[in-house]
Amino acid sequence: MAAVAVAAALSLTTVCASAQDVRAQAVRDTVTESLSQRLFPLFDALGRDPAALNALQARPEVAAMLRARFDRRAACGTDLGCVAQAMVWTDGEAQVLAAAASGKAADDGPAAQAGREIAGINTIVRTYGLGQVPPYPGIDGAGMVDPQEARSRLQAATWLSQTVRANSLQALDPSLDYALALLDAADRRDAISYEPLTGGLNAPAFRRAKGLDWKRYRYSALIVTGVGPEVDGMPLSPYGKYHVRLAAQRFAAGDAPFLILTGGHAHPRATAFAEAEEMRRALIERYGVPAEAIVIEPHARHTTTNLRNASRLLMAMGAPLDKDTLIVCNPDQSAMIENPEFAARNNRELGYQPGTIGARVSPTDLEFRPSALSARVDPRDPLDP
Rank of each mutant, 00 (worst) to 15 (best):
A5M: 00
A8V: 00
T13L: 11
V15H: 13
V15D: 08
C16E: 10
A17P: 13
V27W: 07
R28I: 06
V31H: 05
E33S: 10
S36G: 11
L42E: 08
L42Y: 02
G47D: 08
G47N: 08
D49Q: 11
N54C: 02
Q57N: 11
E61F: 02
R69A: 06
D71N: 12
A74M: 15
C76M: 09
G77R: 10
T78K: 15
L80C: 08
V83P: 00
V83M: 08
V83A: 10
W89N: 12
W89S: 14
G92R: 15
A94E: 13
V96Q: 15
A101E: 07
K104S: 15
A106Q: 13
D107E: 12
G109A: 04
G109H: 12
P110I: 15
A112D: 14
A114E: 00
A114K: 06
E117Y: 13
G120D: 05
L130P: 00
P134Q: 00
Y136N: 11
P137L: 02
G141F: 07
V145I: 07
P147T: 08
R151Q: 13
S152A: 01
R153V: 15
A156L: 04
L160T: 05
S161L: 11
L172P: 03
P174M: 12
S175C: 10
A179I: 06
L180I: 12
A185T: 01
R188Y: 04
R189G: 09
A191I: 06
A191G: 11
E195I: 08
E195W: 10
G199A: 11
N202K: 09
A205E: 09
K210V: 07
D213N: 15
R218W: 00
S220K: 03
G226E: 12
V227K: 03
V231H: 06
L236M: 11
L236Q: 10
S237R: 11
Y239W: 08
H243S: 15
R250E: 14
F251Q: 07
G254Y: 08
F258P: 09
L259A: 02
I260K: 04
A266R: 05
R269N: 05
A272C: 07
E277D: 12
R280F: 07
R281N: 10
I284S: 02
I284H: 03
R286A: 10
Y287I: 04
G288I: 04
P290C: 09
A293S: 10
A293H: 11
H302T: 13
N309M: 05
A310S: 15
S311W: 03
S311K: 00
R312Y: 00
R312A: 01
R312Q: 01
L313A: 10
L313F: 00
L314M: 11
L314D: 02
M315H: 09
I337E: 04
F342L: 14
R345I: 12
L350E: 03
G351S: 10
G355E: 05
T356G: 03
S362A: 13
S362N: 08
P363G: 07
D365C: 13
A372Q: 12
L373I: 00
R376D: 15
L383T: 12
D384Q: 06
